[in-house]
């Protein structure tokens, strides 16, 4: 592998961009393929499957088999709101293999005591997301009930193409939220991506049960997601 290819590969990985490499029949890594790009030797559905599953494979081509390796950023969950649901969600997410960050400017909620060992950011989402941008491999769950806190990150999540966007609140609350997001300039089809009421419909009632419903919803969105287009992914 050429050194510049290795550099570009590492750069994509550090920047949380999904990327694949293709080796020739001799065992030399010869090409990088970014998510959403086409490759002449590799059928589109093989590439799409690789980017969805994160699993490398041998690709049969005329005259042999090529090795397709794939590197996905670790999926992560950003929760807006240091509430009871988040307290239950944090350990569950870790067990399921998802990184998790909680953002809440209300320092009475966002305390080390309540969230031991959790990546907790006791600041406004507007400030945190400046240095911690959302991306296509991130799920956003907004659970504060407070439009002042939830609206901005929801809007950013739609723009960033987060693989999951969920918002807590009744249908009535959500109808008002839709009005505000339309006023922000989001289209109805964008807004329709928001899972609201949040979580799979399992009749969850307690914070712990709602956390299960939210995590299941996120896992389902991640494992069944369509492959993002490379637009806006330029490094």
């Amino acid at each position: 592998m050429r050194r510049d290819l290795l550099h570009a590969l590492n750069r994509a990985r550090v920047n949380r961009q999904a990327i694949a490499t293709l080796s020739d029949e001799r065992g030399e890594t010869v090409r990088l393929i970014r998510e959403g790009e086409q490759a002449e030797d590799v059928p589109g559905e093989v590439l799409a499957r690789a980017f969805r599953s994160g699993k490398p494979s041998m690709v049969e081509v005329a005259g042999g088999a090529l090795f397709l390796n794939v590197y996905l950023p670790p999926p992560r969950i950003v929760v807006i709101g240091a509430v009871h649901i988040s307290q239950a969600l944090a350990p569950m997410a870790r067990l399921a293999g998802y990184d998790l960050t909680i953002i809440d400017p209300r320092t009475a909620f966002a305390t080390e005591d309540r969230f031991e060992g959790v990546d907790l950011r006791p600041d406004w989402p507007e400030d945190v997301l400046k240095t911690f941008p959302l991306d296509a491999h991130t799920a956003l769950a907004a659970v504060t009930h407070d439009p002042k806190i939830d609206d901005y990150p929801l809007s950013q999540a739609l723009k960033a193409g987060c693989f999951y966007v969920g918002a807590l609140g009744s249908r009535k609350t959500h109808a008002r939220r839709v009005e505000r997001l339309l006023a922000f300039g989001h289209s109805q089809s964008e807004i329709d991506r928001i899972s609201a009421p949040i979580g799979l419909d399992i009749g969850a009632a307690s914070p712990g049960e709602i956390a299960v419903a939210v995590l299941a919803d996120i896992i389902s969105a991640y494992r069944k997601r369509a492959i993002a287009s490379p637009a806006g992914d330029a490094s």
Partner: peptide, 17 residues
């Protein structure tokens, strides 16, 4: 030099990739 597991059959201790 870089070594990469490209194929496994049966039980292998480290995954492909």
């Amino acid at each position: 030099a870089l070594a990469t597991v490209v194929e496994t059959w049966g039980s292998a201790p480290r995954p492909v990739g």
